[in-house]
Structure formats: structure tokens, C-alpha cells
């Protein structure tokens, strides 16, 4: 198992490093971008030149990259051009807010998605399964931003039950208010993924239920409950981890849209803000943080997979 994990760790480091190069390259690929972005389209070449010199944009690209990368290693994520503040604290605060949203949604998606998947797999072919399948189709297909619009319309505008936008810090507003601001974003973010996860879990569970060792367990006269919980489920865990890892990535993508709709002050909204205002250093730094978060999540998933899979945990050492 050690070899396996070391391999994964090295892979993650490699990916982070390559990603930083890619992000940097993409941002700087169009020359004159940053300066014009700040000064506007009608800036004079002279002022552009001055700004470029000041920001060190005339140096060779590898040097600029190294400056940025080195800075990141020391905790300096650059500075936001628009807000004239260090990017680091901005991003971290936004990350914290997004983490709450992502965390709550992920727990909801994992719990209900897997539970629903197992339920439909064990009731395969029955009416409840067909209804669930139909619902899954619909929920996967409808875009999350449309759900968001509908939810805001229904709960905020018409029913006045929940706030439509924003975020209330726990310290200031109290638990109820804090929670109220989170309900809609979490629900909307989760619904598509619950459908996706439950669909994938269903098919992997069906596969496990049709395997020979489940047949053998039934042949040994164990009750259906025992066969399901003790024999089938442990084998459905591993594919579930893979499914959840993929969906976590999609969740991160969904957060960008949801935060925009609900004006939730998270990292996604910050990135969109950076794009709208051509705040390229902020964009660079923000992308790096997102990549690192996703990479860490994947590493964690790999770790869980390695621990739960006897073949990796114990190795193939013969008895």
C-alpha cells in the first residue's frame, strides 16, 4: 500500500505543478492582456508601457512564472488589481464560504444519493424504481441554474420563505438566519447530483447483486437482509468512492454557477468577478487554489479507496 500511495502523492504533486504552468500560460498567452485590461482599450501605448514595466510584464515569461510560483510557495498569492488588496486573504475567506456550501451539499449528495441508489437497486423493476428513474432523468437533465431560478421564484419571490441572495455570517446573524441563507443554494446545488450519484450507485449495486458471491451467500441460506448488508454493500463501497470523487469535481463546477445566482460570497463568485473585471492575477491565484483543493480531495478519495480495498491494503502477499 505504501508504494501505491507514494505513487499517487507524486502524481498529485506533478499535476499541481503542471497545472500551475498551464494556468500561467493560458493567462499570459495573449500579449498585452493584463495592461489593457487594467487601463482599458483606449489607453495610450505610453501608459501601457509604464504599467507593464511596473508590473514586471516585460520580463521573460519563465521569469514571471517563477516569481509567481515562488511567491505561492511562500504563501503570497499575488495581489488583486481591481481591489488593490493581497489576493491571499480574499481567496481564503471566499474559500471558507464555499467550503461550507460544498461540504453541506456533498454530505447531502453522498447520503441521499447512495441511499436512493441502493434502494432502487434492491427494488429493481418495481414501481418505485420506475418513478425514481423517471425523476432521475429529469433532474440530471435540467440545468442547475434553471433550478436556481425556479427555486428563487418559488421560495423567495412568491412564498417569501427564504432569502434569495447573500450570506449571513454565523457569528453575526445567528444560526437560523445563517441556515436560511444556505438552504436554497445547498438544495439547488445538490439535486442534480443526487440524481447522478443515485443512478450510478444503482447500476453498480445491481452489478454486485448479480455477482456469483452474492448468489453463493444466498445459497448458504442467509436472509436477504444479511446478504445485502454484509455481503453486497461492502463491495459496492469501492465503486461508490469513485463515483463520489468524480461528482465532487462536478460539484465544484456547479458551485460557480450557484454562487453567481445566489450572490453567495464564495470562491466561485470571486472567480467570475475576476473574469468580468479582467483581474488576471486574482484569476490565476484563484484557479490554483481550486485545483489544489480538487487535487487534495482526489488524494483523499484515493486514500479511502486504498484502505477499503483489501487488494491494496493487504497487498497480494500469498498466504
Amino acid at each position: 500500500m505504501a508504494a501505491h500511495l507514494l505513487q499517487r502523492l507524486l502524481g498529485t504533486v506533478g499535476v499541481l505543478f503542471s497545472m500551475s504552468i498551464l494556468i500561467f500560460a493560458v493567462v499570459h498567452i495573449v500579449p498585452g492582456n493584463v495592461a489593457y485590461a487594467i487601463l482599458g482599450e483606449y489607453a495610450t501605448p505610453a501608459s501601457v508601457a509604464v504599467l507593464e514595466a511596473k508590473l514586471g510584464l516585460n520580463d521573460p515569461l519563465p521569469l514571471q512564472y517563477w516569481r509567481w510560483f515562488d511567491g505561492m510557495l511562500h504563501g503570497d498569492l499575488g495581489a488583486s488589481l481591481v481591489m488593490s488588496r493581497p489576493a491571499g486573504p480574499l481567496i481564503m475567506e471566499a474559500l471558507g464560504h464555499s467550503a461550507i456550501l460544498a461540504g453541506l451539499s456533498f454530505v447531502l449528495v453522498a447520503a441521499s444519493g447512495i441511499a436512493l441508489g441502493i434502494y432502487t437497486a434492491t427494488h429493481q423493476g418495481r414501481f418505485s424504481d420506475k418513478i425514481a428513474t423517471l425523476a432521475q432523468f429529469v433532474f440530471i437533465a435540467i440545468p442547475d441554474f434553471f433550478w436556481a431560478i425556479l427555486a428563487v421564484l418559488l421560495f423567495a419571490s412568491w412564498l417569501h420563505l427564504l432569502p434569495a441572495t447573500g450570506y449571513a455570517p454565523l457569528a453575526d446573524a445567528g444560526v437560523l438566519n445563517w441556515a436560511a441563507h444556505l438552504v436554497l443554494p445547498v438544495l439547488v446545488l445538490s439535486c442534480g447530483f443526487v440524481a447522478h450519484v443515485s443512478r450510478l450507485t444503482r447500476s453498480s449495486m445491481i452489478e454486485v447483486l448479480q455477482s456469483r458471491f452474492v448468489l453463493a451467500a444466498r445459497a448458504k441460506g442467509f436472509s436477504n437482509r444479511r446478504v445485502l448488508w454484509r455481503h453486497a454493500l461492502p463491495n459496492a463501497l469501492l465503486p461508490a468512492i469513485t463515483i463520489l470523487a468524480v461528482d465532487f469535481g462536478l460539484l465544484i463546477g456547479g458551485i460557480v454557477v450557484i454562487e453567481t445566482v445566489f450572490a453567495y460570497p464564495g470562491l466561485g463568485r470571486l472567480l467570475v468577478f475576476a473574469i468580468e473585471h479582467h483581474d488576471l492575477p486574482l484569476l490565476q491565484a484563484g484557479m490554483m487554489v481550486v485545483t489544489a483543493t480538487y487535487a487534495l480531495a482526489n488524494l483523499l478519495a484515493d486514500l479511502c479507496y486504498a484502505v477499503l480495498n483489501p487488494r491494496i491494503r493487504v497487498g497480494s502477499a500469498a498466504a
Binding site: 499535476v15 469535481g249 462536478l250 465544484i252 456547479g254 472567480l271 467570475v272 484557479m287 481550486v290 487535487a295
Partner: peptide
């Protein structure tokens, strides 16, 4: 290593 939405954003 980047979720699709973010890759799209970047490009």
C-alpha cells in the same frame, strides 16, 4: 484535474 466548468472558465 480541473472540473469542466473551471476549465471552461479558464479558457
Amino acid at each position: 484535474s480541473l472540473p469542466p466548468v473551471l476549465l471552461g472558465l479558464l479558457i
